[in-house]
Design a protein around this nucleic acid. Structure first.
Lengths: 225, 225
DNA sequence: ATGCATCTTTGCATACCATGCAACTTATGT
DNA sequence: ACATAAGTTGCATGGTATGCAAAGATGCAT
């Protein structure tokens, strides 16, 4: 009696596949409709119709209409967590995070067209952009845990704060560093995407991404005039 | 859209004062009710009743119910912008930003009790936390502009991108640095608040805040074990 | 293949959110 | 005091979101 925990791994039963297909269809329909008509003019009814399901079913998949525009691959967090944990020990935490995020972004690039539409839609309505940021926060929490685990060295698998220990509250052991790192890296990625989104013709995304992390690693020095 | 006409500075006519009072009453009622009953259980009707206005009037002040929980002082952005521009020239951009934000946070601390309730409410429902993050993005854009202006030296007051210039797209002149700085500093502040919120009894907020910016300026080095 | 247990979809009812509009009330300037 | 601009309110309307129970798929063991 397997507990059927493989919620996100490929394949599985027909049920899982169908659910994933429906979810993807809804998300894609939402993005395409929003790109064409503007996000605010797209009703749940229209999205549901385009995906071939009832309105009620839409709400079985998303907690709110806006979620459909914002959804990022739900297990990107898990993948990045793994990438951070598996990264070579010689990499600094920031570097490990950079590599994990770069890999994830490369993954997203495979659905090239949808990714761009997505960016377009979010960029067009600040309201959704904000929600997108929020969506990343859960992933950032996962990343913070992964970083904390990596810092402790493998072995202690306790959750965050399990080994609060005697360190200073603001110092190591408080969990502040991993969370800061995850939050800052997330902000860096969003800034990169935003900048690239506004200069798509002029710069490659990876160039922006690279420069941003270089700036971070250097402590955000004032640019020499 | 919103009413929110001209002046946000103190005083003025009776009208302005009444509007500010009503807005404050609504925001405060929203936060207090949410702190007591949970944000999701608080209806617009309840908030409006507590503030002594009609439901319709509520929507004259806020675009959505959640906005009432999230509202940060609307002209905090303008004040920080000013602080960044007026900061001593010897400060690095990151330092100038740190000082501006510290001043703003000290300001918020004056309404101590409300600030804590606010933090409690946002922390209790991730949904609102995300929205709060979004609310800061507008302020971050203002800050990015201020930083850009500061970097150019005073004089050119043009908007963002006005001096795109001939620099490399990822280099200075592209506006990437100011935006990154603003976004990262914002993430740092949120991380500080979050961490402090979870360790309120153990650490002073300013200690956390200070450590976070020290880490940033050092390039987020791996903590020595 | 058959039948049962489980999960998913769907329609319906209900409540709340959000906006436009018109009527009414309250400040402001002269 | 008068005219005007600004703010408030109720009503109507349409979209969003959830609980519930019936109907339709799927998984699994026999």
């Amino acid at each position: 009696m397997q507990l059927m925990s493989e919620k996100s791994a490929a394949g599985g039963g027909l049920r899982e596949r169908k659910k994933r297909a429906t979810r993807a269809a809804l998300a894609e329909a939402a993005v395409r409709l929003a790109a064409e008509h503007g996000a605010e003019k797209v009703t749940v009814e229209a999205i549901s119709a385009a995906a071939g399901v009832s309105v009620r079913t839409f709400f079985n998949y998303f907690d709110s209409r806006d979620d459909a525009f914002v959804v990022v691959d739900a297990d990107a967090g898990a993948r990045m967590r793994r990438a951070v944990l598996d990264a070579p020990a010689v990499l600094s935490p920031l570097e490990a995070l950079r590599e994990a995020m770069a890999a994830e972004l490369a993954e997203a690039e495979q659905q090239h067209e949808l990714w761009r539409l997505h960016a377009k839609v979010l960029h067009a309505s600040p309201h959704l952009l904000a929600r997108g940021v929020g969506a990343h926060m859960a992933a950032e929490a996962d990343l913070a845990d992964a970083i904390a685990e990596r810092l402790r060295g493998v072995g202690d698998t306790g959750g965050p704060g399990s080994g609060a220990g005697p360190g200073s509250v603001t110092g190591p052991g408080s969990g502040l560093y991993p969370r800061l790192l995850a939050a800052v890296a997330g902000a860096a990625v969003r800034t990169s995407m935003d900048h690239w989104s506004a200069h798509q013709e002029e710069a490659a995304f990876l160039d922006v991404f690279h420069e941003v992390f270089t700036l971070l690693a250097a402590g955000l020095p004032a640019p020499s005039a």
